[in-house]
Amino acid sequence: MGKGKARGIWRFLRGSLLPLALVAMWWLSANRGFGTGILPGPDDLATTINRLVSSGELTGHVRISLWRIAYGFGIAAGTAVPLGIMVASLPGFGQLLLPALEFLRQIPPVAWIPVFILTLGIGEATKLAVIVYAAFFPIFMNTILGVDQIDSHYWEVAQLLQFSRWESLRELILPAATPSLITGLRLGMSNSWRALVAAEMLAAFSGLGYMIMSARSLVRMDEVFVGIAVIGLLGSLFDWGWRAIEKRLLYWRGT
């Protein structure tokens, strides 16, 4: 156990090397008059963060972005998982839906923004539509994959044990597809996070993406960088959260 902990610390240190080196280079270049006034240094960011947090601006934007993600991702997961299971278990249903979905899947969600603005307006609906669109396909495709990959051996056991449809779902399909489901949810969330920022840059008056765009128009590069840093941090945090959930739910697989 002590050994595992030591290895964890080493891994953490090794992982921090490159970011630290980059920050150091950044600091050096910013303070050696390299593009002074346009490119802020890391020390400038600290004061900017301080200012943005105490004024409540940053936390407000973060809160609204997170709210959008929670809402949109929830809708996407709530439709993509059941739909994926249905497509995977009812061949006719899949033949009906898959060609259309395959076409839609290829289009980046941002490309739909003009259409969404025209039809849904500039309000929250447009941003939610982009998030749902971005999160849906990874979740949907991975759900199908997870169900398709269930070993036929288990289906025979389900037959022998007279599983009802509901029992097949609860005792076999969902647990067996969980690894793939979590992969899909994780990808879906990082997809929708990136799409959200793009949507906020194009069609919003709040959120981290909007914060970056308005800072850009005021040539506040320090605020642009703060926005970028926060987006990256939160994205990593989501991913870390999914890994933790995965570890917890898949303890039956061992390490």
Partner: peptide, 10 residues
Amino acid sequence: FQEPRLFPWF
């Protein structure tokens, strides 16, 4: 069966 075919998640 030849294999136990237990549900590994339970």
